[in-house]
């Protein structure tokens, strides 16, 4: 896919142009253009290995792109990281935390690194611990948290400085349904108040119910973008996704797996 050189949208919460990244022989992201409107709840969906994490890493300053630019609310992230990073709250996927700290310490650490003062950090970390249902585990080392609790404390750490844009990579993975519902409420309220949320997910159903906009990514390219309703065009998002990405197999074969047929 080739694109005309469209200048970055400076009003957009996140505006990516021609992002490109290669790891050795493998091209992970092959020229992604994306505009995330301010105030939207934006879903990024794609099959495994589509380049979602790589794209989000480049959009949040964690990975330097080979080519392309990322603007956060009109600020060029890679040219002025000091101005762009305070606007962003980032939840990376598959990376460690400073897990020898307790939950409360980790939140404090994230807050202080963001340059907040002590009182603000203390107040906000109490609120976040309560919202994430982690108050009882505040003094437990993060290394001893369960996978879901770890995800929640990392999410809390991404929100402590009240960023304008939240970029969350697989925020609901391993999180129990009750906590997931609570987190969804928090995120929706945040978006209603003018914040922008970008989530990547495998769960189409969740994206369809939660997001206002969606982008489908596969093989390092954007296949389709727009509002959720426009993209799915009457079908369920899941069916539309399968149409776009392809690779669905006719469910033949594996007859031997039907144990019921030859037993009894």
């Amino acid at each position: 896919m080739t694109h005309p050189a469209v200048p970055p949208d400076t009003t957009a919460a996140l505006s990516l142009r021609g992002l490109w990244k290669r790891f050795g022989q493998k091209i992970a992201v092959a020229g992604i253009d994306l505009d995330v409107p301010a105030g939207s709840f934006y879903g990024l969906v794609g099959p495994n290995g589509a380049g979602k994490t790589t794209a989000l890493s480049m959009a949040t300053g964690l990975l330097r792109p080979d080519f392309g630019t990322a603007h956060v609310l009109g600020v060029d992230l890679w040219a002025e990281p000091d101005r762009a990073k305070p606007l962003l709250g980032v939840l990376p996927d598959g990376l460690r935390l400073f897990d020898r700290l307790t939950g409360a310490q980790l939140l404090t650490y994230a807050g202080l690194l963001r340059g907040l003062d002590r009182d603000t950090v203390a107040r906000r970390s109490e609120d976040l611990l309560a919202a994430m249902d982690l108050t009882a585990d505040r003094d437990t080392l993060v290394v001893d948290y369960s996978a879901g609790m770890t995800k929640k404390i990392a999410l809390a750490g991404a929100m402590i400085h009240a960023p304008r844009v939240l970029v969350l990579d697989e925020p609901f993975e391993a999180v129990d349904p009750v906590s997931a519902a609570n987190i969804r409420d928090i995120l929706r309220r945040y978006a209603d108040d003018g914040g922008t949320v970008v989530v990547s997910s495998h769960v189409m159903d969740l994206v369809q119910r939660m997001c206002t906009h969606v982008a489908v990514i596969a093989g390092g390219h954007v296949l389709d973008t727009g509002t959720v309703d426009a993209v799915r065009g009457g079908q369920s998002l899941e069916d539309r996704f399968v149409d776009l990405v392809g690779g669905r197999k006719e469910s033949g074969g594996l007859e031997w797996l039907r144990t019921s047929s030859d037993s009894s």
Binding site: G61, L62, D82, L95, R96, L113
Partner: peptide, 15 residues
Amino acid sequence: YDNTAFALHVATGVP
């Protein structure tokens, strides 16, 4: 030693 937990320093842009 930080390993990938270092991502926090990158994301927050610690001077």
